[in-house]
Nucleic acid binder design. Structure first.
Lengths: 119, 119
DNA sequence: GTAGTCACTTGCACTTTGCAAGTTACATGG
DNA sequence: CCATGTAACTTGCAAAGTGCAAGTGACTAC
């Protein structure tokens, strides 16, 4: 722990270029490993595996089997993870206002491939 | 640019373990290089130099000379940088609620060494 | 029984980080 | 005028993290 500051501790958990993007995707519902990989930013597969492990250890996400034989998992946010939506929202507002060329990603009806598997 | 998503673009600018801590410190007023180094997290000096350069290039902070011969600079936030306070606030709220042992750092009257140099 | 899919894991080159030490430009004290 | 001090960086280097590609195991479909 670098300091007791809430900001510093939060950044120790999600202060990298990928973690919050995973959280952003999971806010839309439970997703599989493959679906997370298909996000437009193209997270490297080993980084995704590592982030999912870290976020699960930190209690931000939880995985649940949606299929046995072979076991297939879907990842979803815990309450602690869902609470990060406020942070994400602040980032969206800031980015849209101060970074030209950015926009909120599609929230329209069109399902992006298959969605809301399980739960 | 990884994607046109506002979150992804924001993270490309401040999505690391140190940048937002520098912004946090500068929200209290203009600070010198040495004062930024004295923050409780103990940022390595080469990282601080690098982050100040990046944040300045991104238009989040601006430096101004508070003394000539020798030239000494004080760093402060631009409007774009100050607008990140919403993000910081969201992090503080989330951290205090979900990470045990964290707290908001001192906002009391006691000046931390010399403050609000220049401007 | 061959091909394909999903969910990872492994290897390896490259980049970033963090610690320590060095540098430049002055100010001060004797 | 010379040694010491201070502020603001810069440099070197080992260790850690990142990203691309390829490999693996357990099935399923044809």
């Amino acid at each position: 722990m670098r300091s007791p500051c809430a900001v510093a501790c939060s950044l120790d958990l999600v202060g990298d270029r990928w973690s919050l993007l995973v959280v952003r995707d999971l806010l839309r519902g439970n997703l599989t490993y493959g679906e997370l990989q298909n996000s437009p930013e193209g997270i490297p597969t080993n980084i995704l595996a590592d982030r999912l492990k870290r976020l699960e250890e930190a209690g931000l996400i939880a995985k649940s089997a949606y299929h046995e034989h072979p076991v297939r998992y879907a990842y979803g946010l815990t309450e602690k993870g869902k609470a990060l939506s406020d942070v994400l929202l602040a980032f969206v507002r800031w980015g849209k206002k101060h970074i030209p060329g950015t926009r909120t990603m599609r929230r329209d009806g069109k399902p992006t491939r298959k969605q809301n598997r399980k739960s």
